Amino acid sequence: MFIQPWDAALDDAEWRTWIADGHDFGILSVNGLPGHAPITVPTHFTVDGAALLVHLARPNPVWKPIEADPNVTFTVTGDYAFIPGPWRTRPGTEPTDGVPTSYYAAVQFTCQAAIVDEPEEKAELLRRQMAHFQPDGDHAPIDPGRPPYGRMLPGIRGLRLDITEVRAKFKYDDHKPVEQRTDTARRLTGRAAALDVPAAAQQLRRLDRVGVWKP
C-alpha cells in the first residue's frame, strides 16, 4: 500500500481508534501455493492485544497455504468516497480541469499466522470474539462439551494473527488548501450517498488536527 506523507496516520492512536470504532471486518490475504494465485478471505476479526483473532470453516482453502507460509496480510478499509474532478478544481480554472480521486481509510496488518485447532483453545478464541461482537453475553456457553457450540467446533479452525507491522492510510486531501477540504466535506455531506457522510467526518477530523499541511 503506497502512502504519501500527507496520507499517513498521525499517530498509532489514530488507527487504533478507527479500528475500535466499528471497523472489525476485513480481507485476509494468504500467499498461494506454488503455481497458484494468492487467496483472499473476507471475514470479521477481533483485536486481542498484539494479535487479530479469526475463525474460518475447516473446508476453507487457506489452511495448506498458511501451513506452508504463515506470513499473511490483513487489510481493513472504510469511510471511502469518490471525489469528482470539479470538486478539486483550483480557483480560476475550468471545473472540467479538476482531477478526480478516491478518499478512504485503510489499515494493513502484516502478521504471522498460527492455526488454533485444540478444542478448548478454539472455544476460548470464540469467547474472546463473542465478548467483542455480543458483549451482552446473549448466547449459549461456548464449551467443547456442551451444545450448540460443542458439536460445531470440529467444523472450524481458529487463527491467531500475531501483528508484526501496521501501515495506516487516511487519504483525504490533507495537502490541499483548508478552504477546499472544507468545501469537499460540505459537498460530501450534501450528496450523502453510500459512505459520503463518514468520509466527510474523517476529512473534517483530519482537517482539525492537520490544519495547513506542512511537509
Rank of each mutant, 00 (worst) to 15 (best):
D69G: 15
P61W: 06
V62P: 03
T96S: 12
E94G: 05
G98Y: 06
A51D: 06
V76P: 00
W63C: 03
T93H: 03
V54P: 12
P59I: 10
T96V: 10
A50H: 13
A51Y: 01
P59K: 07
N71H: 15
D79F: 01
W63A: 04
E94N: 12
F82P: 02
P91N: 04
D48H: 08
V72A: 13
D79C: 03
E94I: 04
A51G: 09
K64G: 00
K64W: 01
A50M: 13
V54E: 13
T93E: 03
P91Y: 02
G78D: 11
R58D: 08
V72P: 06
P84H: 07
G49H: 10
G92D: 05
R90P: 00
P95I: 13
T46M: 01
A51K: 03
V76R: 00
P70W: 11
D79V: 07
V62A: 10
T89M: 06
N60Y: 06
A50L: 13
P95K: 11
D69L: 12
T73D: 02
P61T: 09
T93D: 03
E67Q: 04
P86G: 15
G98D: 07
V54G: 09
P70R: 14
T96Q: 09
I83C: 09
E94W: 02
Y80W: 04
I83A: 08
A81W: 01
P95V: 13
V76L: 01
G98F: 09
G98K: 07
D69Q: 12
D69N: 15
L53R: 03
L52Y: 03
L53A: 05
I66M: 12
T93W: 00
G98C: 09
D69V: 13
A50F: 09
T96P: 00
H55L: 05
L53V: 05
G92P: 01
V76Q: 00
A50V: 13
A81E: 01
R90V: 08
A68Q: 14
D69Y: 08
G85W: 06
F82W: 09
G85C: 08
A57N: 05
D97R: 13
D48S: 14
L56A: 15
I83K: 03
K64A: 13
G92C: 01
A68K: 10
G49Y: 07
W87A: 12
G78Q: 09
W63V: 02
T93S: 00
D97G: 13
E67F: 00
T77R: 13
G78A: 12
K64Y: 00
I66E: 10
D69S: 14
D48F: 01
I66D: 06
D69C: 15
G85R: 05
T75S: 14
A68R: 11
N60W: 10
T73R: 04
F82K: 02
L56I: 15
R58M: 06
I66Q: 10
F82D: 09
T77Y: 09
G49P: 11
D97C: 05
D69H: 14
L53M: 11
I66N: 10
V54L: 15
T75V: 14
H55K: 05
T46C: 07
T89V: 12
T73H: 02
T77N: 14
G85I: 08
V76W: 00
D79E: 11
H55A: 04
D79Q: 05
A57V: 06
E94R: 10
R88C: 12
A51L: 08
F82G: 09
V62N: 05
